[in-house]
């Protein structure tokens, strides 16, 4: 049997969704693999929802919005761009291929372009093969990664930074300094790294109490770094010491405050 990817498309109401409609009106055919979800604006694309979609086993996610400058809500698509950027960074830290997520601009008059893009994306996903999270036996390790990424995307600190990214680059920060893309990217990468690892730790110790050494093996991360995260998580009341076994304190997740 040939592999038929299941793709979820998040399309903005004013341009891309209209473009998809136009493809229909114009009877331009394209592969059947896409399931479209209408949003008012591509800026509504919520990283948590995208990650959940992937965790549920979608083989690909295609986000579409108005061309830059065309956004019905002035700059929603710019925010979408930032969010996809963060999503890609998050995905890069999981073992799921970043290529399963794509952002494109399609205007209301680009029915042809819409069909082309869908075709192209389906090819892209076919080349990648089925998602390791699809089917009855999703890859546990990768799923843990995606769920950690999802939890990280829920994190206040990360959302705050993403939310302010554009203002800080365009208008400058509270000190009136323009922050360069690279600089902000660096900060963002650090926060994403941190949050991703912490959420992986949280999910792991939620299953059963683990030591820093065990965590470090599971995460393939040096134990010194793991300990630093454990210290912060303990201070924030996310995890606590369950017991000490031999010379190893075992940590467990706390249910509160999340």
């Amino acid at each position: 049997m040939t592999f038929e990817p299941r793709i979820v498309g998040f399309l903005c109401n004013w341009c891309s969704y209209a473009g998809a409609d136009l493809a229909g009106v114009s009877r331009i055919s394209y592969p059947t693999n896409i399931r479209i979800i209408r949003l008012m604006c591509s800026g509504r694309v919520e990283p948590v929802i995208v990650l959940e979609t992937l965790a549920q086993g979608a083989d690909g996610v295609l986000v579409m919005g108005c061309h830059i400058g065309d956004c019905h809500y002035i700059s929603g698509n710019l925010y979408a761009e930032r969010k996809i950027n963060v999503l890609k960074k998050l995905l890069a830290r999981t073992s799921l291929e970043v290529g399963r997520l794509r952002l494109e601009w399609v205007s209301a008059s680009e029915g042809g372009r819409f069909a082309e893009l869908v075709k192209d994306f389906v090819e892209q996903i076919k080349a990648l093969g089925p998602s390791p999270l699809a089917g009855d036996k999703p890859d546990k390790n990768i799923l843990a990664g995606v769920l950690a990424a999802k939890a990280a995307a829920e994190d206040f600190r990360l959302r705050l930074l993403v939310g302010r990214e554009k203002t800080m680059i365009d208008d400058g920060n509270v000190y009136g300094e323009k922050v360069s893309e690279e600089e902000l990217d660096k900060i963002l990468n650090e926060v994403i790294d941190t949050e991703f690892v912490r959420n992986r730790i949280y999910l792991l110790v939620k299953e059963k109490p683990l030591s820093v050494k065990e965590l470090s093996e599971r995460l393939d991360l040096d134990s010194k770094t793991v300990l630093r995260h454990v210290v912060v998580m303990r201070r924030r009341g996310l995890i606590t010491v369950d017991r000490v076994e031999g010379t190893s304190p075992l940590y467990t997740a706390l249910e509160v405050g999340r």
């Binding site: 030591s211 820093v212 134990s223 000490v244 010379t247 190893s248 304190p249």
Partner: peptide, 17 residues
């Protein structure tokens, strides 16, 4: 302090003997 008063070593969070 950082380890909540447990004596741990910084390389791996183990209790030193």
């Amino acid at each position: 302090g950082p380890y909540g008063g447990m004596v741990l070593r910084p390389s791996d969070g183990e209790v030193p003997r």
